Amino acid sequence: MMKLTTIFLALCLFQNTFCLDYDGWLNIKMEHSLNCNFEKYCTRGTITLKSIRAGTAVIDQINFNKKHIDELKELAELDEFYTLRTLVSTAETKDVEIFTFIKAKSFLENGLSDIIRAWVLPNGEVIALSLQAANSSQSKSMEYKNAENKLNSSFYIRHVDQAPLPDTASYIQKLEREREAREKGELKDNRSFLAKYWMYIVPIAIFVMISGAANPEPAGQAR
């Protein structure tokens, strides 16, 4: 039976207003490859937000049993990764697949405690997820038998600012105005003589220098 864990979602704040422009629901289905029988991935749980701005997320996930732990230990002995497959859905998008992973040994040593972060654009689009072991003050010895073991997960949102877009339309309009002004003779060229005609002066100067080097003046005859 799944157990509910309610946590508060950390939102980016700026001058007492939310950095996110978008407000709507967010659902993240979590799957992993432990104790899945013949399937490649099977359910680990879900993270649900009815409203991003409300700031409350609900994590609903399974507890690990002995078979989960044994398979996780096998990965740890091989220094392999524990992989999380997520399907992210919002009011605008549906089941966007994102993979994230963590060292199996680190996950075990930290008592099945992990931190999941979602990187979100101002429009509410989730562009990345990260999985990290929670750095517990004391690592636990993972000698499990038949008892079920609770996953201890925390979830946070990280705001990603979009880079400013170039004002291409204004730049094209400026070039068009300059072109029209040149055609009408309204745009004066205030450049110096050298700036205007350097492409003609430089070749002539080089030619003179080469000619002088190729034809040196003969030495004066002694009297």
Rank of each mutant, 00 (worst) to 15 (best):
S51K: 00
D21W: 05
E39D: 08
F14N: 09
T46N: 13
E39V: 05
L11M: 05
F18E: 03
T46E: 02
T43I: 06
G24M: 01
K50E: 15
D23M: 11
D21Q: 10
F38T: 14
S51Y: 01
N27S: 13
R44N: 06
I47Q: 09
K40R: 07
T46K: 06
I52T: 06
R44D: 00
I52N: 07
G45C: 14
I47T: 08
G45L: 14
G24V: 03
R53M: 09
C12T: 14
Y41H: 07
T48A: 15
N27A: 07
S51C: 04
I52Q: 10
L34E: 05
W25G: 10
N27V: 12
L13F: 03
C42I: 08
E31L: 15
K40S: 10
K40W: 02
A10R: 02
N27K: 01
K29A: 13
L20F: 15
Y22R: 06
T17D: 09
I28K: 05
M30P: 04
S33A: 15
K40A: 14
L13P: 02
E39L: 08
C19D: 04
K50A: 13
L26F: 14
C42K: 06
E39C: 03
E39W: 08
F38Q: 09
L11D: 05
F18P: 02
Y41N: 11
L34I: 13
D23S: 11
K29E: 12
F18Y: 06
T17S: 01
Y41R: 02
N37L: 03
S51R: 01
Y41T: 09
F18K: 00
I28C: 02
N27F: 10
K40M: 13
L13Y: 00
S51L: 04
H32S: 06
T17E: 09
C42S: 10
S33G: 09
N16T: 07
L26E: 06
L34G: 05
S51D: 07
G24R: 06
C42W: 00
F18H: 04
Y22N: 03
N35C: 11
D21S: 09
I28S: 02
S33E: 15
R53Q: 15
T43D: 10
L20S: 15
N16V: 05
C19R: 11
E31P: 00
C12I: 04
D21P: 01
T46F: 06
K29F: 12
Y41Q: 03
A10S: 13
D21H: 01
H32G: 08
E31I: 03
F18R: 00
W25H: 10
N37G: 13
L20Y: 11
